[in-house]
Design a protein around this nucleic acid. Structure first.
Lengths: 241, 241
DNA sequence: ACAAAAGTGTTGTGCGTACACCCATGC
DNA sequence: GCATGGGTGTACGCACAACACTTTTGT
């Protein structure tokens, strides 16, 4: 290929992945102890450097696969971070991606063998560089996503119950929702298909399993959507002195 | 600075700017005939390459200033485009920014002396590489921005009339709005301050000037906002065969 | 029989939309 | 005096929030 741009600076381009998973009723993040200098041993996002022969998406997927063994997951570009000294090692531009995955037993093992850990988003430790800022931005993006796109397909197993779906929404948005309103709203979208089978782990009565209607899900994911639920107002508690 | 990452590939990083302006009741885009190979002479966005000693924002501002003489304008990161062959000259990653500016006489001249042209968003020509895709994404982002953030401060002169503001919203969203509803909604946000002065160019009666309340504007720009207006339904026209 | 979670409907209200006429002025 | 754009109020409907009791079943 002819080189037209010889005279311009070239840069290291990092790809950092913010991986969300939903497990045990909590929204979690996949973190890693960094294995190389600088900042070796500190908590970090999954990251790697872009290669010349791969597109951004390909690169992000490769990085994720190398570090966790995971593949075929939903990822989206979040933001580019490019402050001059964000990485003390060398001037590096980082393209942050966020990903949503269903955490199953298999993934849990895979992640562990790679030295990765699932951490609740309520207990994020200090991360290297500007990674905390990235996580913060990803969380806010994920939240505003719930209002415009259906969510869950990427974070829940194929079959799930309405209480599980509700608790996913609650975990993402850090708020309590009214059961009746939630069920009514989510059902009338037509996104869900009720199965004839109950989940019996969480209660004696058992909750019906549902699945997403894949076509509708994809349609809404493309066209957008409107799902807004306000906080369930908790009764005011007066603190008596 | 110590080099920790010697072994990794480095990349050209372009900064491309999608500049929106509002002029003569239309939403316009600032375009340029490219002055160097490859694709010399074709229509292009404002673009340049990132230098090692500048942050992304600084770089984008520098590029814009070099090409148009404009400075001090509102810019926001849009997306990174990184397909392998997006630039036939060489593998280049492009970070796209979008900017909103008030077009005044001064800017119009500045732009012209730099060979830039204001083009209505309804008449965007074929652009080089993936620049049309960038414009498309920027437009959609700008539209969804109007629903969550106040807009106008960056695109209108300091004093403006309500009909002007409305026509800005209409130009961005390509839809007609109901005058009464628009005025009611926008006024009750408290963002606007009515002046005692009328604009007399557009009509005999004249329309009152307004200004943004800067503090409220910044507050809403930060915290978000909710401004959604549906299309004014135009009466159905039956086409008789 | 009781504890624990699942499931189920109705009502009120605030927001958003639709809609038509008068006003001020320049020509 | 008329044409042109600016300015104003109300009524209706719907979507959303609030809210409490019954059902199932494992122990």
């Amino acid at each position: 290929m002819a080189k037209f741009y010889k005279e311009y600076d070239k840069h290291l381009v990092a790809l950092d992945c913010i991986i969300f998973g939903f497990d045990e009723g909590e929204l979690k993040l996949l973190l890693l102890k960094r294995k190389f200098e600088p900042a070796k041993g500190e908590w970090s996002l999954m990251g790697g450097f872009l290669k010349s022969d791969e597109s951004l998406d390909e690169g992000a997927r490769r990085v994720l696969h190398q570090l966790t063994g995971l593949s075929d997951i939903y990822m989206e570009q979040l933001h580019v971070f490019g402050e001059l000294n964000r990485d003390p090692g060398e001037r590096t531009i980082s393209i942050a991606f966020y990903a949503l995955i269903k955490v199953d037993e298999n993934d849990r093992k895979l992640a562990e063998t790679h030295g990765a850990h699932w951490v609740s988003v309520n207990q994020i430790p200090q991360l290297i560089f500007d990674h905390n800022q990235m996580v913060d931005k990803a969380l806010r993006t994920l939240r505003s996503r719930t209002e415009r796109k259906p969510i869950g397909f990427e974070l829940l197993p194929e079959k799930f119950t309405l209480p599980q779906l509700q608790s996913l929404y609650e975990a993402i948005n850090q708020e309590q929702l009214d059961k009746r309103n939630f069920r009514k709203r989510i059902l009338e979208t037509g996104l869900l298909e009720k199965l004839d089978e109950k989940e019996k782990g969480a209660s004696k009565k058992g909750a019906y399993y549902y699945m997403f209607n894949k076509e509708k899900y994809l349609m809404y994911a493309e066209m957008g959507f409107h799902f807004q639920m306000k906080v369930k107002k908790s009764p005011l508690i007066k603190i008596t002195t």
